[in-house]
Amino acid sequence: MTQATDRPTRRLSDAGVSIWLDDLSRERLDTGNLAALVESHDVVGVTTNPTIFAGALSAGNAYDGTLAELAGTDVEDAVERITTDDVRRAADVLRGVYDATGTVDGRVSIEVDPRLAHDTDATAATARRLWATVDRPNVMIKIPATLEGLPAISATLAAGISVNVTLIFSLERYRAVMDAFLTGLEQARANGHDLAPIGSVASFFVSRVDAAVDARLDEIGTDEARALRGTAAIANARLAYAAYEEVFSSERWSSLRDAGAQPQRPLWASTGVKNPDYPDTLYVTELVAPGVVNTMPQATLDAVADHGEIAGDTVSGRAQEAADTIAAVEAQGISMDEVTARLEAEGVSKFEVSWDELLTTTKNGLDAAGA
């Protein structure tokens, strides 16, 4: 007889995975939708980015009252007011989760202006301002994992501020992010901060890797190349998890853990499937491992709730298999270093474009409200 523990389950939490929603809007807050998802879909966190806010502001009229109130305000100040208000309200919705999980989950992220991605000092200063403005212990400040972002990550953590590191694509950069995290906590301890409530996740992007690699495999066009489609992203993420296990079993980490620190959890980002030929839960069911976060757009969240079969850990112990997959991809003449470097640059650029759209939409709303 099959044991109950061997049966597929649709509860990621049973497998040690935390579900965060990759979306936020005033409408979700006003209607109680976010609170409902906490109950119905096991959502225990929220991530945001400039693209999400730009979409929320341009859809419907949920922000009309705020725009009228802010008419005549500088557009950048208005954007910060709108986004921090939404994040503060979401943090209040999730405060019960934050308390119940001992400050591990119940987190809501807000991103530093992406135009500062290559300015260390400005990023760190903006992170401190956003932290003070939102003024909630369960907020996380999102900082991109650019080379210039790494010291800003350490400086922000050293100030006792929780950080969501975003736009991680390569294993080399992920290791640098973990080093920046450990450095930041060491400095926070030296600065006298309580390490226990300082949270951090490392947002490792998934589907964009397949989109980029698959396009190159299609250009090659051989049967051998086509057979590798849809394999690179999951392999890349599984290798990242192996690196996480290595770093967070080190003596350096043990010293911080003994001082009360939480580990920086891997967060699988960009988990919505971009290729309709792939299962819509692919980047969830194939990346189940203890202690990870999976942040999902609404469509993926619904798909997992409806038909996602979570059979247990699908990551641990598969590093060699993943390494072999990446080696096979590179044997086709595809450089993963080149792919991930381009994805990072494109990621920053796309968020800058979304930020400009957010500014334009806000300005138009302010102008209309003041007319």
Rank of each mutant, 00 (worst) to 15 (best):
140 M>R: 07
168 I>L: 14
131 W>R: 09
144 P>E: 13
131 W>V: 00
86 D>W: 01
172 E>C: 01
81 R>S: 12
110 I>K: 00
183 T>A: 15
88 R>A: 15
154 S>T: 12
131 W>C: 09
186 E>V: 01
171 L>N: 13
124 A>M: 11
177 V>G: 08
88 R>P: 00
125 A>D: 15
120 T>K: 03
130 L>M: 04
81 R>M: 07
175 R>H: 13
154 S>D: 04
123 T>N: 08
104 V>F: 09
182 L>R: 09
87 V>H: 02
176 A>R: 12
138 N>E: 13
184 G>M: 08
132 A>F: 04
119 D>S: 11
167 L>I: 10
160 G>M: 08
122 A>P: 01
119 D>G: 04
132 A>M: 05
130 L>R: 01
162 S>Q: 06
94 L>M: 11
106 G>T: 04
138 N>H: 05
178 M>V: 12
176 A>Y: 04
89 R>N: 08
101 T>C: 10
183 T>S: 14
149 G>N: 05
111 E>H: 03
138 N>P: 03
122 A>K: 11
137 P>V: 09
187 Q>P: 00
157 L>H: 05
156 T>M: 09
157 L>Y: 10
91 A>R: 00
181 F>G: 03
173 R>S: 08
95 R>I: 13
145 A>N: 02
131 W>P: 00
109 S>D: 05
151 P>E: 12
112 V>E: 14
115 R>H: 15
141 I>A: 08
126 T>Q: 15
98 Y>F: 15
189 R>K: 14
175 R>F: 06
127 A>M: 07
100 A>C: 05
187 Q>E: 15
187 Q>Y: 03
146 T>G: 12
126 T>P: 00
111 E>C: 05
